[in-house]
Design a protein around this nucleic acid. Structure first.
Length: 255
DNA sequence: ATGGTCGGCAACCGA
């Protein structure tokens, strides 16, 4: 079974990339973040023609998440209320005996800002949700854009960004608590080396070519599911397609 | 080489 996650930065702008990638890689599951469409505008038809069902939750202009699958999902949940806000950052479902959860963690803007505090609160809210609704002994995959680099291996300039948003100890501690609940970072299970990234800021000239990136997208799974992972890779070549996102596809294969 | 990010959405905000 092949599972992938991708921050699309607009599913409408990225539809050709996504459809080509689906045709080429034929994943069983694709988690999407930053779809940036309201639900009535989600490209259900195009995705359906490609052979995929979609569950999604969007809002105007910002955020938006979706899970594309070949087989239907049950027990679909959308939305996660944190501090009274229900931004479109969460969608989950069950595919036969496997729980699938898609998260788009707030970026945080700047350490010390309200949005940074909201980022920490949202991670806490996600952990609370996991503890309430799931069990680490179940087959479960939690994937998405977490907007946190965990260690020095996970970004191109750890010294320069230490203490900044995306590489701050408070975010890392919250993310670690989520992992400690019972999740394995599947990329790190297979690939211990640094310099592997999933995001390259558009604003850095030739950032991809110079590999000035961050590993902030993750496929996490509970132990029983992690025991079934066989391979993981980052599809840098997808960034060579016309009009790519600033992120790229992270892929994992499970038996 | 005379610039240098995108996308949404209609002036800037968010990333």
């Amino acid at each position: 079974m092949k599972v992938a996650t991708y921050n699309a930065n607009s599913i409408r702008a990225r539809l050709p990339v996504i459809l080509e990638w689906l045709a080429r890689e034929a994943p069983d599951v694709l988690f999407l973040q930053e779809t940036k469409v309201q639900d009535q505008d989600f490209p259900v038809q195009a995705v359906g023609d490609a052979g995929y069902r979609a569950v999604f939750r969007g809002q105007k202009s910002y955020n938006g998440v979706a899970i594309l699958t070949r087989s239907p999902l049950t027990e679909v949940r959308t939305g996660l209320v944190v501090e009274g806000l229900d931004e479109a950052r969460f969608v989950a479902g069950r595919m036969a005996g496997l729980y699938l959860i898609n998260a788009y963690v707030p970026q945080g803007v700047e350490v010390g800002s309200d949005r940074f505090r909201f980022k920490l609160a949202w991670l806490q809210g996600l952990l609370d949700h996991m503890m309430t609704h799931y069990d680490p002994s179940w087959p479960l995959i939690l994937a998405g854009d977490f907007n946190v680099a965990l260690t020095e291996r996970d970004l191109f300039d750890p010294a320069g960004f230490r203490g900044e948003v995306g590489f701050h100890p408070d975010e890392q501690a919250m993310f670690q608590r989520l992992l400690d609940w019972g999740l394995v970072d599947i990329f790190r299970k297979h690939i211990p080396e640094g310099n592997h990234y999933t995001f390259w800021d558009y604003r850095i000239p030739n950032g991809l070519k110079r590999n000035l990136g961050w590993r902030i997208d993750y496929i996490l799974s509970t132990a029983p599911m992690a025991a079934r992972s066989r391979a993981v890779w980052i599809d840098r070549e997808a960034r060579a397609m016309p009009k790519p996102s600033d992120h790229t596809f992270l892929v994992a294969e499970f038996e």
